[in-house]
């Protein structure tokens, strides 16, 4: 799968994501655009049938729904009901009805413990399949994540991969302004984890990091851009919240469509 092919798929996914959020008048688009590349790559190319994906940063639900749609696992009718009355795809994932959406997430700091449990059970049962957990960077303010990190490192859950969407922005400020987390990689390395840092919008780098053999639980810190691909959204905190106006939507589509 070459760069051109992935970029074409990503463009299609991004346009569907923008339309879905625009039509439903839903915010959170910034963090969806920072994580879409990774979620899409995982669902189309990296994950196998037995693998499990856990979206700990549940506010990127739109990116997950679109990736499942691109993989042929959600239909158009589901996407059209996004965030509306009678939907199965709410603003944050509600688990249990779809094999690709096992857990209800959205309250930060839950997905990693759940992922560790699933990975542990697979170890106990000698069952196949890896577990991939996508977290935000601001989510590392949550103490429960550090509890989970201690646990998964101690249990040597090498069937678990953490992907961190490090876009540098959180709810009411930059991550460096709210609670200093960096150097994240150094911190994780002290837990005896296999830590890698990549450009989260470089699918080839992501592919290499995912494919690398690891004897320890793997952490991939993905340096990303909030609102990636839409100039007026990039690195802007307000796109954690705002729905798009018609004018903004048209401009976003124009930019994403441009060659």
């Amino acid at each position: 799968m070459g760069d051109v092919e992935f970029k074409s798929l990503l463009k299609k996914a991004k346009l569907r994501l923008l339309r879905m959020h625009y039509e439903s008048k839903v915010g959170h688009i910034g963090g969806n655009l920072s994580s879409l590349d990774a979620i899409l790559y995982l669902h189309l190319f990296a994950m196998k049938n037995d693998d499990l994906f856990v979206l700990s940063k549940g506010h990127s639900a739109g990116a997950l729904y679109v990736a499942l749609w691109m993989a042929g696992k959600l239909d158009e009718g589901d996407l059209e009901k996004f965030h509306r009355d009678g939907t199965r795809i709410a603003g944050h994932p509600t688990g249990g009805w779809h094999p690709g959406i096992r857990f209800s997430t959205g309250s930060l700091g839950h997905g990693l413990g759940l992922s560790a449990g699933a990975a542990l059970a697979r170890k106990i049962k000698a069952a196949p399949g890896k577990v991939f957990c996508l977290l935000s960077d601001g989510e590392w303010n949550e103490g429960s994540n550090w509890e989970a990190l201690i646990f998964l490192a101690h249990q040597k859950l090498d069937n678990l991969t953490l992907l961190i969407d490090a876009n540098g922005l959180q709810g009411f400020g930059g991550t460096s302004e709210v609670a200093t987390l960096e150097p994240l990689a150094e911190k994780f390395r002290t837990f005896a984890l296999d830590v890698r840092e990549v450009d989260g919008h470089d699918h080839a780098a992501l592919a290499l990091a995912l494919a690398a053999q690891a004897t320890l639980p793997k952490v991939i810190i993905m340096r990303t851009v909030k609102g990636k691909g839409v100039s007026f959204m990039e690195n802007r905190m307000e796109w954690h919240y705002l729905p798009m106006t018609e004018e903004q939507y048209k401009k976003a589509v124009e930019e994403v469509t441009a060659p």
């Binding site: 759940l114 992922s115 560790a116 449990g117 699933a118 059970a121 103490g143 989970a148 201690i150 646990f151």
Partner: peptide, 23 residues
Amino acid sequence: FINAGVAEQNMVSVAAGVASEGM
């Protein structure tokens, strides 16, 4: 039998994750 340490929030999440695998 797993001693999850003094980390009850994680212990409960991990237990839920284990149960999600049918155990």
